[in-house]
């Protein structure tokens, strides 16, 4: 049971937000959906969960379109920045309402999470701070019996301790009860090792659709004296460059030409996901 997104196109007025986005989301994996502000991440998530409609393209689960298909949409949950809850309602009532809507809710786990995050379920939604609103929405997302959980900026307003706790709980519930999580966030460093596969969205198109390990295995930083570095990296896919006097670092994405000898003065090292993302999306290179 996989979600297949094919050739999704979305325009708001004359502005093209998504331009032929296709990707497949498999069961029981953790994905990262990365992109700069305005890349179209939230729009894509809203289309996948049928909150807004695409101009073109389809979202299907096992070949069946999810559009207005309540049963299939019941397997998907999107936690987003939008607050859909009435301010005067108590959290415990909102838990109950979610249970009715989705036909289930892990109350034991919700209780555990409320205690871990020190959230009193007797409070009303309107009484919560930004951080605690996020926590409340996360609890709902983790306790619903859905197969696909989409988290759009799930750590908005969370302090370092709460973020740490959230990552632990996410991996814990994922291990004990595997399902798919798609995390869209700007905090790339913090989730880099939790995600197995990454989608990078840039200007409404998919720039990268790859396993994190594989993606990083093709990312290199070549440092050394400027001329030597340029000579060695000539013809390679250079996505960024840094220099300090005559010391130069070229960021390369793609295979190195292994036949060539590496000059003594040149050093080859690796980069992390965040660095790679920054260089890929800063308009400096051709991407791939």
């Amino acid at each position: 049971m996989e979600i297949k997104i094919s050739e999704i196109t979305k325009k708001f007025g004359k502005k093209q937000i998504l331009n032929g986005v296709s990707l497949t989301i498999e069961p029981n994996r953790i994905y990262g959906l990365l992109g700069r502000n305005g890349a179209g991440k939230s729009t894509l998530l809203n289309i996948i969960t049928d909150r807004i409609f695409a101009n073109d393209g389809t979202v299907t689960i096992d070949g069946v379109s999810t559009h207005e298909h309540d049963e299939l949409l019941g397997k998907i949950y999107l936690m987003s920045e939008v607050n859909l809850y009435q301010k005067r309602v108590r959290l415990q009532e909102l838990f109950k309402a979610s249970k009715i809507m989705y036909g289930g809710f892990d109350e034991t786990y919700a209780k555990h999470l409320c205690e871990a995050f020190e959230l009193n379920p007797k409070l009303r939604f309107g009484q919560l701070s930004t951080g605690y609103r996020t926590i409340f929405k996360l609890i709902i997302a983790l306790c619903l019996p859905v197969d696909y959980v989409f988290l759009d900026e799930p750590i908005l307003g969370l302090d370092a301790n709460h973020r740490e706790l959230f990552y632990k709980e996410l991996l814990d519930t994922y291990s004990s009860h595997p399902r798919t999580f798609v995390i869209s966030t700007h905090m790339i460093e913090e989730i880099a090792n939790m995600i197995e596969h990454v989608f990078v969205l840039e200007n409404g198109k998919i720039l990268v659709d790859d396993d994190v390990d594989h993606m990083l295995s093709q990312a290199y930083v070549i440092t050394g004296p400027g001329e030597t570095v340029d000579q060695y990296t000539e013809g390679l896919n250079i996505i960024g460059t840094e220099s300090l006097g005559n010391l130069k670092g070229n960021y390369v994405f793609g295979s190195l030409n292994d036949d060539r000898e590496i000059p003594d003065t040149v050093q080859i090292s690796r980069m992390d996901l965040q660095k790679l993302f920054i260089h890929l999306t800063s308009g400096g290179g051709t991407g791939k």
């Binding site: 994996r29 990552y167 991996l171 994922y174 291990s175 090792n193 939790m194």
Partner: peptide, 17 residues
């Protein structure tokens, strides 16, 4: 695997690998 995954925020598939 779960313990290591949880403790260090590493995907369980990575730990397993």
């Amino acid at each position: 695997t779960t313990e290591m995954s949880r403790e260090f925020h590493i995907n369980p598939a990575t730990v397993l690998k």
